[in-house]
């Protein structure tokens, strides 16, 4: 199966671990990723905050570039990129589309959030057949954040208040996904850089709830959520005066583990909060 792939800027840098895990599991599952030719930054929060027109056009250029390839599906691992690409296609297809100096080319593929792509019935069935090392006994909460779900007008989400894709995936891998109320609460996104005090408070709230629910780790599908939840743990603990330190997994890393892929520890070694001791205790480390 061939799909078009829009990795986005972070996956070339700080989210290298996410990129590695995606490329490896797709290779394993026979999904061939073809990168959007000469793709550009989607504009992210910065563009939609202070230059609306550019935010639509930057994202739209990527869609037109994607239409060059013949594939039907466009995989977008970063939920913010996913959201911006969808928002652009929404903006251009509606009444006010004429405001922008862009037209969408015919043949734009279906834009997929990565977790939703792997969370379809058929994918889950295939996945459960291929599980070699079920993640029995691992108790996690799935954290979706904002941009894969909201606003549903743009994302097309039908379970935006209680999304299920990652929960289904994690269960198919044999782990336990606990119910918790903060699945789609915001991690502060780029405020972690511009207003770290706000970020610490917003992320601390998530740790606190995950801990109360008895989660041993938090599973994410967003590199922005991952870095916000993973990189500042010491400072957040100092701020809250409490110990949290949960490992923050990408769901694709858990897929790699359950599929028996030997390179998983090298992805995990790039995290700040090292998940390996937990996996060791559970006997889940390859």
């Amino acid at each position: 199966m061939k799909v078009t792939y829009y990795p986005g800027c972070s996956l070339e840098g700080t989210a290298r671990d996410y990129a590695d895990s995606i490329e490896a599991i797709c290779g394993f599952l026979g999904i061939h990723l073809e990168e959007v030719p000469d793709w550009n930054c989607c504009g992210a929060t910065a563009a939609h905050s202070v230059d609306h027109k550019a935010s639509v056009e930057l994202a739209a250029r990527n869609l037109n570039q994607a239409s060059i390839l013949p594939n039907e599906d466009l995989l977008v691992p970063c939920p913010l990129c996913f959201n911006r690409l969808r928002a652009a296609s929404w903006a251009l297809e509606h009444e006010e589309g004429g405001r922008y100096s862009f037209r969408l080319q015919p043949g734009i593929p279906m834009i997929w959030d990565l977790a939703n792509f792997f969370g379809t019935e058929s994918m889950l069935k295939e996945l459960s057949l291929k599980v070699k090392k079920p993640l029995n006994g691992l108790k996690v909460v799935c954290y979706y954040g904002c941009m894969a779900s909201r606003p549903p007008r743009v994302t097309g989400s039908r379970d935006h208040e209680n999304p299920q894709s990652m929960d289904r995936i994690v269960k198919a891998l044999g782990a336990t996904s606990l119910h918790w109320p903060y699945k789609t609460d915001c991690c502060g996104a780029s405020l972690m850089l511009s207003r770290p005090d706000m970020g610490y408070r917003m992320v601390g709230k998530l740790y606190d709830m995950a801990q109360r629910m008895g989660a041993e780790a938090i599973v994410v599908s967003c590199q922005m959520c991952q870095s916000n939840l993973d990189m500042y743990q010491e400072r957040i603990e100092a701020e809250w005066g409490r110990k949290f330190a949960p490992p923050i997994f990408y769901f694709t890393e858990l897929m790699g583990l359950a599929l028996g892929m030997l390179e998983v520890p090298s992805w995990l070694s790039r995290h700040f909060a090292d998940p390996r001791p937990l996996l060791e205790r559970k006997g889940l480390l390859p």
């Binding site: 929060t45 939609h48 904002c146 909201r150 606003p151 549903p152 915001c186 996104a189 405020l191």
Partner: peptide, 11 residues
């Protein structure tokens, strides 16, 4: 400026 653009309100 401190709005996190989380889209909860719009949703």
């Amino acid at each position: 400026w401190v709005c996190a653009s989380c889209e909860t309100c719009t949703t």
